[in-house]
Design a protein around this nucleic acid. Sequence first.
DNA 1: TTACAACTTAAAGTGCACTTTAAGTCAACA
DNA 2: TGTTGACTTAAAGTGCACTTTAAGTTGTAA
Lengths: 144, 144
Amino acid sequence: MPTTTVTRYAIGDFAKAVGLSAPTLRYYEKAGLIEPHRLENGRRYYETADVHWVKFLLHLKGTGMSINELQQYVEWRAQGDATIPQRLELLRHVKEDFLVQFNEVQHHLQILNDKINWYEEKDAGITQDHEDFATYLERFGHNE
Amino acid sequence: MPTTTVTRYAIGDFAKAVGLSAPTLRYYEKAGLIEPHRLENGRRYYETADVHWVKFLLHLKGTGMSINELQQYVEWRAQGDATIPQRLELLRHVKEDFLVQFNEVQHHLQILNDKINWYEEKDAGITQDHEDFATYLERFGHNE
DNA sequence: TTACAACTTAAAGTGCACTTTAAGTCAACA
DNA sequence: TGTTGACTTAAAGTGCACTTTAAGTTGTAA
């Protein structure tokens, strides 16, 4: 007689598994992003598939999606394959916004790096008569 | 008799020049990040150097520095070259945090891209009997 | 069996970075 | 000369994503 064991996570263990707090999981649940199962005593439990789902949500969130956008995505998902075009459009839009931000942020890093280098040169080398940061930036074509 | 003209920006024009709102500029000023000059009638005015300064602040902010960290930076800056080591340490720390975030975010993008591609294949190709997203990710070694 | 940790809910609180409002002064143009 | 728009201040409000609190129930180890 074959048996299968399915891992059931209590909310605290699940929280550790996905790197969120239990209150945050309840908050996401209220927002409609997660639908845990319940034991007979009313306590939530989660399964392995839920771990993957939450981790995927966190990836989307990490690309800049708000809770509201995630809600929309999840809603469409619940409606089945007919909403795949909508979901694709949403994700493509998220990606476009992401790439814009990504480029901006790389430029911010460049300036940060330049400033660090400028301080290092100023700190190590000839302190007097040192060119200012604006002039320094120009030498690399890093204007503004 | 030589004369020089210095460009003076009223707060509204300055706001446009740096891409912030006038209230935000007043907010930054209260936080100690900007020190505009004043006309005799009490109105603020800004000069070209202030444009560069605010843009630089926005670069730092864009790397993840909070208003509080910017305040600390500005405070040290006002104390002169003796605080360059502290400023360097702060900026290096900001950079480290940034790079961690940057790597994470690139991974988020990868998963987003994978999901978009998965939808595109599912949408265009053989809809029935399609492998699930987790299996799809494994094909590329993009686990989780 | 007792005590303590983990769970349940609803509601209020937090932190950040602004944004808006209110009430008033001032400047520039038709 | 009047009226419109831009400025001044202090204080209150907003939006987002949680986090904390309060009051109670339940499961587990000593």
